[in-house]
Design a protein around this nucleic acid. Structure first.
Lengths: 225, 225
DNA sequence: CCCCAGCCGTCAGGTCGCCGTCAGCTTCGG
DNA sequence: CCGAAGCTGACGGCGACCTGACGGCTGGGG
């Protein structure tokens, strides 16, 4: 789960980035609308956290721009203004939810999870591919009744692959969803992660579900002949 | 997906070419506007990556020229100048997006993917010819329900043939869409690729769809008696 | 604070599939 | 029946991918 945090206060930005990262999110942090627009153009986010009152423009205008461009990424607005009017304006502009400052980092994480879990959103609590299941909230995988212990990366990887089960996920695309821009990483990192995940799946009896598509990427699908 | 990279710095050009190639793009790299214009005249690109500040002219002028000639290939401008004015000028000239240096190769790839995925979809997700289908995104082919495993080249080849199904595609034209200029290749390479593709299609039951037109090229069409 | 354990990114060496080349064969037109 | 065009089996180099080993880092005890 990759988030874009747009917040101009350095102190707060750092704090929130850390808190969210600690809760397992991959976070890109930008400090103005220009930077945010750039980030959105370069990567796909599962959620955008947007502070209003940015130095280079009105955040809500940006929301409208995004929506006009048919970008449906959920947006959570963070603001000090808590009045009902502001709230309505925000939701009208196309935001999905509001969180009024001040709040705890942990509260923010919880709210993020809630939005991502929302009905109609992309997050089903439990993903299934054949006999393989992955509980997104608890980060637990299982093959039938047999639980599979996964590390954080392995879980993230499995999640993205399962979400796009049946189609090829490019290495670049995986890299994008596993790492923020400020985490430089060799291309090999993804291979290694896949290798380790594959081993655990195999050990659990899920053989032949995670395919390599040479020159393109990886493909998750139910083991069919 | 074939890209034209226009960048005069040798070091950077090499780096980006490699990075993009690694992410599955076919890349032609030119170092000046003259070379770029030449390339555009002789091949069709899915995206142009244009550095400004080239030795033989202003890149933005070239963009305007292209647009005036109704060439709508998406253009991503790479530049060190990040000011808002420059940005506006670039977009006004007809560029589709801006990426400010310095950036990572992986970031560039991501941006390319984002642009290519943009609405306006120049690309039908699934091509059909008779019972034969090819999913351009997942690079998977199928005859009815039976999936057909294709290598990268085979997929590229099938894609071009299916896109022009019903008309003869010359060997030269195939060569152009499969290979970048800097990949020297004997004419026989295409024949071999066709041969291998034909075998896989035959094995999957798609007999007699891929015809040879002696002296001209190849023709893909539904098998009719 | 130190130590230990697990995670994970890096590296290097090995394996293997892809595909371009070649050469010999087949097909086709005249 | 000849020559040119096209086909295809064999081969080999290259590079993508895999994986075991290593070590920096982090988080949790004690």
């Amino acid at each position: 789960m990759r988030l874009l945090l747009v917040e101009d206060t350095v102190r707060l930005g750092e704090l929130l980035s850390e808190g969210l990262a600690r809760d397992g999110f991959v976070v890109d942090w930008r400090q103005d609308i220009e930077g945010a627009a750039e980030a959105v153009a370069s990567a796909t986010y599962d959620l955008i956290l947007l502070d209003l009152g940015l130095p280079d423009g009105d955040g809500l205008d940006w929301v409208r721009t995004l929506r006009r461009a048919t970008d449906l990424t959920p947006i959570l607005v963070l603001t000090a203004r808590g009045g009902l009017d502001d709230r309505v304006t925000g939701l009208d502009a196309g935001a999905d939810d509001y969180l009024v400052k001040p709040f705890e980092a942990s509260e923010l994480s919880a709210r993020c999870r809630a939005i991502l879990r929302r009905p109609g959103q992309r997050m089903t609590p439990v993903l299934h591919v054949g006999a393989l299941a992955f509980n997104v909230a608890s980060r637990q995988a299982a093959h039938g009744d047999l639980p599979i212990e996964l590390s954080r990366r392995e879980g993230d990887l499995l999640e993205t692959l399962m979400r796009r089960a049946g189609s090829v996920v490019t290495r670049g695309s995986l890299e994008e969803s596993l790492y923020a821009f400020n985490e430089p990483v060799t291309p090999n990192a993804v291979e290694v992660a896949v290798s380790r995940l594959r081993r655990k799946l195999d050990d659990a009896g899920c053989t032949g579900m995670l395919h390599t598509v040479r020159g393109l990427g990886y493909l998750m699908r139910d083991a069919v002949a």
